[in-house]
């Protein structure tokens, strides 16, 4: 036993040299809790993008299956869509300002920008529900044609994501009020930032491929 001790210590010494292949991480050899959250959340968003891809593909395939019902040109109101697009775009920049206030350590500024973002999100969902109720009142219900089924599925899935983003945002406002800008809350706000901006990217696809191309049809 006594003569194996020097041999056992040799691999340990080697282990300290080994991790040098990780060039970017050379200043931290341990993983802090939550260090992989951002990448994990990003991969969730990419899988969410695949859900939307399948819904976009479904809509693309069914977009001319009117079944004798209304066509996009007859039911879409572009001014309303333009207003909604503007609301979501402005909410992106207000969230950006919340992140900047967070980086500067300003709790009040962060909460104020977040609250404004949440109000814009509520306005977006409100306008969308108004549009849906108008369509349904006109008889353009999801049951009317495959085109309308695909339309409601795609747009409402996006709207549902925005709704959950608003709920998350309200939770963050409460947490910020109780505990302030500690690292965990900062991490959560960065995840929500990715989520919110990701939904804006999806909306670019919606207003281009559903509404604008629909009006050209």
């Amino acid at each position: 036993m006594s003569n194996t001790a020097p041999e056992a210590s040799a691999p340990v010494a080697l282990d300290h040299e080994a991790p040098s292949f990780y060039v970017l991480d050379d200043h931290e050899h341990h993983h802090e809790p939550g260090s992989s959250t951002m990448l994990g959340f990003w991969i969730y968003l990419m899988s969410d993008a695949l859900i939307f891809a399948s819904l976009f593909a479904t809509y693309g395939v069914l977009s001319t299956a009117y079944a004798g019902g209304p066509t996009p040109r007859e039911i879409f109101e572009l001014p309303l869509v333009a207003v909604n697009t503007a609301i979501l775009l402005i909410s992106s920049i207000t969230y950006g300002f919340a992140m900047i206030a967070m980086q500067e350590g300003k709790l009040g500024g962060t909460r104020a920008w977040l609250a404004l973002t949440g109000l814009l999100g509520i306005a977006f969902v409100g306008v969308e529900l108004y549009e849906f109720s108008n369509l349904i009142a006109e008889g353009a219900t999801p049951q009317r044609s495959a085109f309308l089924s695909a339309f409601f599925t795609l747009v409402a899935t996006h709207g549902l994501h925005v709704t959950f983003g608003i709920i998350w945002l309200v939770v963050m406002l409460v947490q910020l009020g109780q505990r302030g800008l500690h690292p965990e809350n900062q991490r959560r706000l960065m995840c929500l930032s990715m989520f919110w901006h990701f939904l804006d990217v999806i909306w670019i696809g919606v207003f281009t491929f559903v509404y604008l191309l629909g009006m050209l049809r």
């Binding site: 802090e32 951002m38 990448l39 300002f97 992140m99 900047i100 980086q103 900062q186 991490r187 960065m190």
Partner: peptide
Amino acid sequence: APGEMEGHGSR
């Protein structure tokens, strides 16, 4: 924050 992505943009 731990695991922070490289910078979160400037104004």
